[in-house]
Design a protein around this nucleic acid. Structure first.
Length: 376
RNA sequence: GUGGGUAUGGCGCAGUUGGCUAGCGCGCCAGAUUGUGGCUCUGGAGGCCGAGGGUUCGAGUCCCUCUAUCCACC
């Protein structure tokens, strides 16, 4: 159940109830593709970080260890020791990112495993079955993520197929939720809007999928090659055509600035690999811009990553020490950076929620963007 | 002491019958990365080729001397 507490412009402060607890939105979901946040971050760390929802991936868990195995072990929550909400991505993005080894047909997509090369077929039913086995809180519909520069004809056909796939997803999900041996019989389903950067296709598709009465609606296929301005424009025209009484999720986005802009356009849910991937690559976020801790200028820098930051890294470690760990390829270096970045993202979301409640979101957004882009 | 080998950017090496504007890997210095293959990619800095002399139009490549270092034998 999604409940709006208050609005500030188009920015929404809401709660989303699930069988695994209530989510306070706007929220950033931490990406743990293979049932783990890369960078040696444990689920026990995530509570300290302020993480509400963890994201995992259907495709990756299907190829390894196998969703049947996760099911036999009691589902993802028990498997990775996490009792809060989990959202599983459907595998649709892998169809896009593993392009070259794929074949898309009406029934679904066949492509090759990146682990052992074997051929895998995944369609709406397979994706729902896998996600049901994983027993996540929220399952994502199986869609095709279209490159931003795809031509109009291709986009029209693809989006029409994604709609047909959504219908099959909904039917299959209802069937699975009614089975006796299903672990999470209350599994929710989010649909995904597509349409590349064609306003009319986006709007038509948004209206069309809104008729399905799903638990939430995502906007996919953004941040895949178009400019930030184009992305904001698509949000401007699309979000108003999605149900206001359901959460809106912008998939795979983005930078702190992207998130501030999207919240301002009514988006509730986000996920992105940036905090973890950038952390592994020594890029850390601060309110005064991003730092690359591998840079030589930090060799003797005794300060924490960010003064006053309450994350587990900043309480104890200096930039110089972290730089040393990163240069020496010590796992701890990555771990510290990832922890800091996840804290930064989750903390920013917390401040965003406060600002909306206080009716000061516009001011907060402006001051944040001014500072965040100092180094850009 | 004798015989043999080796000396090329921070480290490890390529450099063919002399034609180089001297390359490569790692490292170093930076930059990319948006529903994650701890990956990958893109730039950049850095060498009078151990020292001295000779042959030649031309030497990192050939010759001589020296120095350093390694191996074997005394």
């Amino acid at each position: 159940m999604y409940k709006i507490i208050c609005k500030d412009g188009r920015a929404k402060r809401a709660t989303f109830e699930t069988v695994h607890g209530t989510v306070e939105t706007p929220v950033f979901m931490n990406v743990g593709t293979a049932a783990a946040i890369k960078g040696a971050v444990a689920t026990t760390d995530l509570k300290e970080i302020g993480c509400q929802v963890q994201l995992s991936n259907t495709y990756h868990l299907h190829v390894r260890p196998g969703d049947e195995i996760v099911k036999k072990l009691g589902g993802l929550h028990k498997f990775m020791y996490w009792d809060r909400p989990i959202l599983t991505d459907s595998g649709g993005f892998q169809v896009f990112s593993l392009a070259g080894l794929r074949k898309i047909k009406e029934e679904g997509v066949s492509f090759h495993s990146h682990v052992d090369g074997r051929k895998i077929f995944m369609g709406p039913e397979e994706s729902m079955q896998i996600q049901s086995n994983l027993a996540s809180t929220i399952a994502m519909a199986f869609d095709e993520c279209i490159p931003a520069l795809a031509d109009r004809k291709y986009v029209e056909n693809s989006v029409a197929r994604t709609t047909r796939w959504l219908e099959r997803c909904k039917t299959e999900m209802a069937r699975l939720n009614s089975l006796d041996d299903t672990i999470n019989k209350s599994q929710m389903l989010f649909g995904i809007n597509q349409g590349a950067i064609y306003d009319d296709i986006r709007i038509e598709h948004a209206k069309r999928i809104s008729e399905f009465d799903l638990d939430g609606y995502a906007i996919g296929g953004l941040a895949v090659g178009e400019t930030a301005e184009e992305m904001y424009h698509i949000l401007d025209v699309t979000v108003p055509h999605l149900p206001e009484n359901k959460p809106t999720y912008l998939m795979g986005v983005g930078t702190p600035v992207n998130i501030l802009e999207a919240v301002d356009r009514g988006v509730d849910f986000f996920d992105c690999v940036y905090p973890s991937r950038n952390g592994r690559h020594a890029h850390v976020y601060t309110k005064n811009g991003k730092l690359n801790l591998k840079n030589a200028k930090f060799e003797l820098d005794d300060r924490p990553i960010e003064e006053g930051c309450q994350c587990p890294a900043c309480k104890h470690y200096s930039r110089a020490y972290i730089r040393h760990l990163l240069k020496a390829n010590e796992m701890l270096g990555m771990r510290i950076c990832v922890l800091h970045n996840l804290y930064f993202y989750n903390n920013m979301m917390k401040e965003i929620r406060q600002a909306i409640e206080e009716g000061s979101f516009k001011d907060y957004k402006k001051s944040m963007i001014d500072r965040l882009t100092i180094n850009d």
